[in-house]
Measured scan of single mutants.
Amino acid sequence: RTVKALYDYKAKRSDELSFCRGALIHNVSKEPGGWWKGDYGTRIQQYFPSNYVEDI
């Protein structure tokens, strides 16, 4: 599953992803609480806010 970032996001913790608008995040798994995990660049299975992305 791949999603596309709608907005920039700067990680606030070491287990979160930072990305820019338009970024493609791969291998996404839905987690409870509005935070999902995914791969972006060299960061593997890190958290990001689900309301910052859309399915593609």
Rank of each mutant, 00 (worst) to 15 (best):
R43T: 08
K10R: 13
Y52C: 12
K37C: 07
D15P: 01
D15Q: 09
Q46Y: 09
L17M: 14
P32L: 13
K30V: 13
F48A: 00
G33R: 05
R21E: 08
L17S: 04
R21N: 12
D55Q: 08
G33A: 04
V53G: 01
A23M: 05
W35H: 12
A23Y: 12
Q45N: 08
I44Q: 08
F19I: 06
K12N: 10
D55K: 10
E31Y: 13
S14H: 11
S14Q: 14
Y47W: 12
H26E: 13
D55P: 13
A23V: 07
Y52V: 13
E31R: 10
Y40D: 03
Y47S: 07
S14R: 14
L17H: 04
S50D: 05
C20P: 15
Y47D: 03
S50T: 06
A11T: 05
K30A: 09
I44F: 09
G34H: 11
E16S: 04
A5S: 05
E54R: 11
G22H: 03
R1I: 11
Y40G: 02
L17R: 00
G38L: 00
L24F: 08
K4W: 06
W35L: 12
Y40H: 14
W36V: 00
R43K: 13
S14V: 10
W35S: 08
A5I: 01
Y9T: 01
P32C: 08
N51R: 12
D8G: 12
R43A: 14
R43S: 09
I44M: 14
N27V: 00
G22R: 02
Q45H: 05
T2S: 12
A11R: 03
G34N: 15
D55H: 09
K37Y: 07
Y47V: 07
D55V: 09
K30H: 12
Y52A: 12
V28A: 01
L17T: 02
C20M: 12
A5D: 01
E54F: 13
D15F: 11
G41E: 11
D15S: 14
P32K: 09
T42D: 15
Y52T: 14
G34A: 12
Y7S: 11
R43P: 01
R43W: 10
N27H: 05
T42K: 09
W36S: 15
H26Q: 13
F48M: 01
A23N: 11
D8C: 11
G33N: 11
A5H: 00
Q46H: 14
A11C: 02
V53C: 07
P32D: 12
D55W: 10
A23F: 07
Q46M: 14
N27K: 04
W35K: 04
N51M: 09
L24W: 06
H26W: 12
L6G: 03
I25Q: 01
K10I: 07
S18V: 01
K10M: 06
L24K: 09
Y7E: 11
E31H: 08
K10L: 06
K30Y: 14
N51A: 13
G38D: 03
N51Q: 11
Y7G: 06
D39P: 02
F19P: 05
K37W: 01
H26R: 10
L24T: 09
K12D: 09
H26D: 10
L24A: 03
Y47K: 11
N27E: 10
I44A: 09
V53A: 05
K30L: 10
Y40E: 06
T2C: 07
V28G: 03
S18G: 03
Y9D: 02
L17I: 10
K30E: 13
T2R: 06
L17P: 02
A5V: 00
D55Y: 07
D39E: 02
H26Y: 11
P32Q: 14
A5L: 00
Q46W: 06
R21Y: 06
K37I: 07
D39R: 00
G38C: 03
Y7L: 12
T42W: 10
K37E: 03
Y52R: 07
Y7F: 15
S18F: 01
E16K: 02
W35C: 05
N27W: 00
A23I: 04
K30Q: 09
Y7M: 12
K30N: 10
Y9V: 00
R21G: 07
Y7V: 09
G33H: 08
S50A: 15
G41I: 04
L24M: 09
L17Y: 05
I44L: 11
K4Y: 14
E16R: 05
W36P: 05
D15L: 06
D39Q: 00
A23K: 03
T42L: 10
N51F: 06
K10N: 13
S18A: 02
V3A: 05
E16M: 04
T2N: 04
G41Q: 09
D39A: 00
R43Y: 09
Q45Y: 03
L24V: 13
T42N: 15
S29F: 15
L6F: 05
E54W: 04
S14A: 14
V28S: 02
K37G: 01
I25L: 06
Q46L: 13
R13V: 05
C20A: 14
D39F: 05
Y52W: 07
V28M: 00
L24G: 02
D55S: 09
W35N: 11
F19G: 04
N51K: 12
Q46E: 03
Y52E: 00
G22E: 06
V28W: 02
E31F: 14
L17W: 01
R13Q: 07
R13E: 07
R13A: 10
S14E: 09
R1S: 13
L6D: 04
A11E: 02
S18W: 01
V53H: 00
D55A: 11
E16A: 05
D15M: 15
N27F: 00
Y47G: 04
S14P: 05
R13F: 13
G41L: 10
Y47R: 15
K10T: 13
S50C: 10
D15E: 14
D8Y: 04
G33W: 08
G41S: 04
K4G: 02
N51W: 13
K10A: 07
G34T: 14
N27S: 05
N51D: 14
K30R: 13
R1Y: 15
K12R: 12
W35V: 07
I25V: 05
Q45L: 01
F48G: 02
C20W: 05
K12M: 13
R21V: 11
H26L: 12
D8S: 12
I25R: 00
Q45A: 07
Y9S: 01
R1L: 15
K37D: 05
D8E: 10
L17G: 00
C20L: 11
W35G: 04
K37P: 04
T42Q: 08
V3C: 08
K37S: 05
A11D: 00
K12I: 06
R43G: 13
K30S: 12
A5W: 00
D15I: 13
K4S: 05
T2M: 09
N27G: 03
H26K: 09
A23G: 07
S18C: 05
C20T: 13
I44C: 12
D55I: 06
L24I: 11
R13G: 07
S50Y: 14
A11Q: 10
G22T: 01
L17N: 06
Y40A: 07
G38E: 04
I44Y: 11
K37R: 12
G41N: 15
Y9A: 00
C20E: 15
S14W: 07
W36A: 09
S50L: 03
A23R: 03
D15T: 15
A5N: 00
Y47N: 08
T2Q: 12
V53D: 02
K30P: 15
W35F: 14
K37M: 04
Q45F: 00
L6A: 09
H26G: 05
S50V: 07
S18R: 01
K4D: 02
N27C: 03
F48V: 01
K30T: 08
P32V: 07
Q45P: 03
W36T: 01
S14D: 12
N51E: 15
A23E: 13
G22P: 03
Q45S: 05
Y52I: 12
F19K: 04
K10D: 14
A23T: 12
I44G: 02
G38W: 02
C20F: 10
W36L: 11
D55R: 07
K30F: 09
I25A: 03
T2D: 06
V53E: 01
K4T: 07
E54V: 08
Y40C: 12
K12F: 04
I25W: 03
R43V: 07
G38I: 02
E54S: 07
A11M: 05
D39W: 02
E31T: 15
R21A: 11
C20D: 12
G38T: 02
S14K: 10
A5E: 01
I44E: 11
Y7C: 11
K30G: 04
I44S: 05
H26M: 12
G34D: 12
L6S: 08
K4M: 11
L24Y: 14
Q46C: 10
R1M: 12
K4I: 14
E31G: 15
Y9C: 15
T42S: 14
V28T: 05
S50I: 08
Y7W: 12
Y40K: 15
K12G: 10
L6Q: 05
N51L: 08
Y40V: 09
G34Y: 10
F48L: 05
K12H: 15
A11N: 06
R13P: 03
G22V: 01
Y9G: 00
L24N: 09
C20K: 13
G34E: 12
L6N: 08
N51C: 15
Q45T: 04
T42Y: 06
R21K: 08
F19V: 01
R43I: 06
P32M: 15
G22C: 02
Q45E: 02
Q46G: 15
K37Q: 06
G34W: 05
S18N: 04
I44D: 04
V53R: 02
K10H: 14
E31V: 11
V53S: 04
I44R: 13
T2I: 11
T42A: 12
S50H: 10
V28R: 02
F19C: 04
A5K: 00
L24C: 13
G38R: 00
Y7K: 15
G33T: 05
A23C: 12
D8A: 15
L24D: 02
T42I: 13
G22K: 09
G34V: 13
Q46N: 11
K10S: 13
D55G: 07
S50F: 10
E16L: 05
K10G: 06
A11G: 11
G41M: 08
Y40R: 05
K12T: 11
R13S: 12
N27A: 04
G41P: 00
K12V: 09
K37T: 07
T42V: 10
L6C: 06
